[in-house]
Design a protein around this nucleic acid. Structure first.
Length: 242
DNA sequence: GGTTGCGAGTCCATTTACAA
DNA sequence: TTGTAAATGGACTCGCAACC
């Protein structure tokens, strides 16, 4: 197996070399494990057309917007045929541990864990992130509402629908948000959408209008206004300043 | 006494259209 | 892509009553 690592910024020559190596591996039928942003490489090269994959949650939206047809999951790592993709540095460790366990036995993998003081490794089916109730204090219906909001960034749901989904009244949800995060539900929702938009601006070359639409804004003008109100800078200016 | 639901009035986010 | 203005629907706030 060949392991391909790529960070957020990569030199052109290195990028060309990496592609050459990947193409060679594919031709020879050598399994490839893509760590970090290397998932993006495989997508660009058209190697993920029929395979499930994963990428760090921070880049997932950008990957989906750029390659709409891909089957991008929330898993820590995904192994599909000859390709493996990981959600980040620590997920790479989890993948490697699983491979060691498979090829050399669980005892060897546990020994590596002990040696590296990792203690344990996570399984492929684990989600990259879930709201950590002990750290954030967010739990129960509030966590459920936030999850629904995150799942509906592109097609924002009215508060009425969200409250119905979690079996609570609108008023109850307003109180929950006020007491837990000192914000109204829709204000919080808006911040989530704008944060996603900001990441898409940073990570993709998609037109501002498309990013606005992808984050639930009906028009570029409205998107631009909200963005500036929140971050103090226009979307296009933010892109050029990066 | 604390929690919840309801309703009315107010405010603001959003849409739309248009111009630069 | 950004800005402006007008219209409007929906979110927010608050008070009150019912319930546990």
């Amino acid at each position: 197996m060949v392991v391909v690592c790529a960070g957020d910024t990569i030199e052109r020559q290195t990028s060309t070399d990496l592609r050459r190596i990947i193409r060679l591996c594919v031709r020879q039928g050598v399994p490839i494990a893509a760590l970090g942003t290397a998932t993006w490489f495989l997508a660009e090269m058209g190697l993920l057309e029929n395979a499930a994959c994963t990428i760090h949650w921070d880049k997932k939206a950008a990957l989906i917007e750029t390659f709409a047809h891909l089957k991008v999951t929330d898993r820590l790592f995904v192994r599909d045929a000859n390709l493996a993709t990981c959600a980040g540095e620590f997920a790479s460790f989890d993948l490697v541990m699983e491979l060691i366990s498979e090829h050399l036995g669980k005892e060897h993998a546990l020994a590596v864990c002990r040696y590296t003081t990792a203690g344990r490794w996570r399984s492929a089916s684990d989600d990259q992130r879930s709201i950590n109730t002990s750290e954030t204090g967010i739990s129960g219906p509030l966590a459920e509402v936030i999850q629904i909001m995150e799942e509906h960034i592109e097609d924002p749901l009215p508060l009425h629908d969200i409250s119905r989904c979690v079996g609570r009244s609108k008023r109850q949800i307003e109180r929950l948000f006020q007491s837990s995060v000192s914000s109204s539900p829709m204000r919080y929702y808006m911040n989530l959408r704008l944060a996603r938009a900001k990441r898409l601006i940073e990570q993709t070359q998609l037109p501002i209008v498309e990013i606005g639409i992808a984050c639930g804004f009906a028009s570029a003008s409205h998107f631009s206004k909200c963005f500036r109100q929140t971050f103090g800078i226009n979307p296009s200016a933010w892109r050029t300043s990066r």
